[in-house]
């Protein structure tokens, strides 16, 4: 494929960093902004994806496959996290019929 041309020669690495940072921040915003646990999970996924994007970009930048391998692991972890997270959510939902994190107030002080 002729696309072997390194994209970073056209789009500087910094741009990826910025995009990634912005995406990461949006994820953080979501985590802080929402009350629905599922949406918050999604926002965490956005954060993880921003990282994945950055990893791939770095991988290209360094011309090194390790970064892409790492993305695998991240994906696996993300999948596992979502599975467990949703399982926890289900248990909560069974008990309090809500996935609103602000309803979790039993433990404090």
């Amino acid at each position: 494929m002729s696309l072997l041309l390194n994209i970073l020669q056209v789009v500087p690495m910094q741009y990826y960093l910025m995009v990634s940072a912005a995406l990461f921040s949006i994820g953080v915003l979501g985590v802080l902004f929402r009350r629905n646990a599922i949406t918050i999970f999604m926002c965490v996924e956005i954060m993880l994806n921003s990282i994945n994007l950055l990893l791939v970009a770095f991988s290209t930048y360094h011309n090194d496959s390790n970064g892409q391998v790492f993305v695998f692991f991240v994906m696996a972890v993300a999948a596992a996290e979502v599975a467990v997270g949703l399982a926890i959510l289900v248990t909560i939902f069974r008990n309090i019929r809500s996935v609103d994190i602000d309803d979790l107030k039993a433990l404090k002080n």
Binding site: N6, L8, Q9, Q14, L17, M18, S25, T60, S65
Partner: peptide, 23 residues
């Protein structure tokens, strides 16, 4: 903060990169 901190970076693409199909 993240953006402004990151903007301090000076990542310059090495010359010999892009030859191997790492992906």
């Amino acid at each position: 903060v993240l953006v402004s901190a990151i903007s301090k970076t000076a990542l310059v693409l090495p010359q010999n990169s892009g030859a191997v199909d790492i992906g």
